[in-house]
Write a protein that binds this DNA or RNA. Structure first.
Length: 351
DNA sequence: AAGCCGGGGTT
DNA sequence: AACCCAGGCTT
């Protein structure tokens, strides 16, 4: 029995029932794959339901405003995925007559679709023989073959892809791809893999050599940068101010409260808002509200919110007025949306 | 090749 | 605190 046959024999009785496994519509499979990039299935599931419900076809997605798509993506992270999603929906409408591609080569041309996603969609939607290599596959193959090449360097990536290409089934590439990822996600897990009951135990080189916990190999460690952000909640009795982020970097094109970024911890500790930069408001009060630390994969954000009450708010350049009663019309980064949600709650229930 | 891009879960 | 998650893009 081939490896692929063993694998799919394990998969069929052990697979989870996931909604994107019950369709061959390349558009819906594409939605699921973009949502699930670097994202756990449990986290992405509700977003998938939202998107197939609100945008059942690629035409619906293309017709939506980018701001609306970003709003539906709010909280999921890696927001370039949402921008590329919207861009690609429009390019499919304009250049492909609204017919979503299902071949590897055509999919690879789409913005936001790389080798993994093109292999996944083409195998699931049209049974093209293209082997997926994602985090699960790196782990499963890294252990089976006890591979020492790092997965984050080109030689290793090439070798893993070659092995995956060699193992995939001719007749059931779709099942094979689903199976190897499911096996990595639920059986050959990073922590406490179920080696005792593993069907591949006898052929697993890492199990024989006792290197399970150090496979796959990765060389890079990410360092994190400290940043110090002051957000101003500037409000009169009815409205407050927001602005759109236009600088390249984190949270591009999302909305936020007016921001002053301190250069270092000392500047942050000594910072006091200077509203002259924003306009001539009659100020009733300024005081610091809450402090928090928000962790990104590569940055540690030290955040202080300031509450600033003014007599009468005016619209100023590069900013928008938003009703205090309805603060969530735009997409905000997680810490901002959380702060705004808190503002809505009655003070009785605040800590 | 290396760095950038989120938020959340697990150990 | 470190690592990872159905990765891809930019430099």
């Amino acid at each position: 029995m081939t490896f692929s046959e063993q694998l799919t024999n394990w998969y069929l009785p052990n697979k989870r029932d996931l909604p994107w496994r019950n369709t061959q519509d390349p558009y819906k499979i594409w939605l699921s794959e973009i949502i699930l990039q670097q994202t756990r299935i449990e986290q992405g599931l509700s977003y998938y339901y939202t998107f197939v419900e609100k945008y059942p076809t690629v035409a619906d997605l293309a017709a939506a405003e980018l701001d609306a798509v970003l709003k539906d993506w709010e909280g999921l992270g890696y927001y370039s995925r949402a921008r590329n999603l919207h861009f690609t929906a429009n390019s499919v409408m304009d250049s492909l007559n609204g017919k979503f591609p299902n071949s590897y080569e055509e999919l690879l041309k789409l913005k936001g679709v790389g080798t993994y996603t093109a292999a996944a969609i083409s195998s699931f939607a049209s049974k093209e023989k293209r082997a997926v290599v994602d985090g699960n596959v790196y782990r499963v193959l890294g252990r089976l073959y006890n591979i020492e090449d790092p997965i984050d360097a080109n030689p290793g990536k090439k070798r893993y892809q070659e092995i995956a290409d060699d193992l995939i089934s001719d007749k059931y590439p779709d099942l094979h791809n689903q199976a190897i990822m499911e096996f990595g996600a639920t059986h050959c897990t990073k922590h406490k893999p179920k080696c005792e009951t593993c069907i591949f135990q006898k052929q697993c080189l890492a199990f024989q050599k006792n290197t399970i916990d150090s496979r796959p190999v990765k060389k890079k460690k990410n360092k994190i940068q400290n940043r110090y952000l002051n957000f101003y909640h500037i409000a009169d009795q009815n409205n407050f101010l927001i602005q759109q982020r236009t600088d390249k970097g984190i949270w591009f094109q999302l909305y936020q409260l007016p921001l002053h970024e301190s250069l270092d911890k000392r500047g942050f500790d000594n910072h006091i808002p200077n509203l002259e930069l924003l306009g001539d408001f009659e100020i009733f009060s300024i005081h610091p509200d809450r402090n928090l630390i928000h962790l990104l994969s590569h940055q540690k954000l030290h955040i202080r919110f300031w509450k600033i009450e003014v007599k009468e708010l005016k619209k100023i350049e590069q900013h928008q007025l938003v009703s205090l009663a309805d603060p969530v019309a735009k997409a905000f980064p997680k810490p901002i949306s959380e702060f705004l949600q808190n503002q809505l709650k009655p003070k009785l229930f605040q800590k």
